[in-house]
Structure formats: C-alpha cells, structure tokens
C-alpha cells in the first residue's frame, strides 16, 4: 500500500533538508547527522523509510 508513491512524497519533501540544511550543519562541526528515519503507520502496517543523509557515514556502532 505504502509503495513508491508514499516513499517518493517523503523523499520529495525531505530533499531540501538533506540537500541544504544537513550538509551546512555537518560542515560546521564534527557532529554529523547521518540518518533520517521516518516511521509511518498506516492501518496495521508499519513502514520505516531510512534516508542516508551524509556522505561521511560513520562506522556502525559496535
């Protein structure tokens, strides 16, 4: 149900943030915003849309 249309809308809405805000803040300090997760519940279905926001993705937590 929540196929590509919903995903595309979220991507479209968040693109300015990922394109502009996050790189600007990431450039200011060593604090990096690297992942944006949108959890959506539609009826009984739960979806998680994970958007990688940084080229400098830190190593996974051990």
């Amino acid at each position: 149900m929540a196929g590509t249309t919903l995903e595309n809308i979220f991507i479209r809405e968040l693109d300015p943030v990922v394109e502009s805000i996050i790189p600007r803040l990431n450039a200011l300090s060593n604090l990096k915003f690297y992942e944006l997760v949108i959890r959506v519940q539609i009826g009984g279905n739960h979806f998680e849309i994970i958007i990688d926001t940084s080229a400098e993705h830190p190593e996974e937590d051990k």
Partner: peptide, 22 residues
Amino acid sequence: TRSQAIILNRGEFLKSQPASVL
C-alpha cells in the same frame, strides 16, 4: 510483524526519478 524497512537510495532516486508523484 507486518513491518517493512524501506531503505531508499536517495541519490539514485533523484537521478532516475524526478519528484513528480502527486
């Protein structure tokens, strides 16, 4: 569960698919 994790490759999405949905 009926949950799904949809991991999008945003870069490829933007290249291949203009944001034209709705």
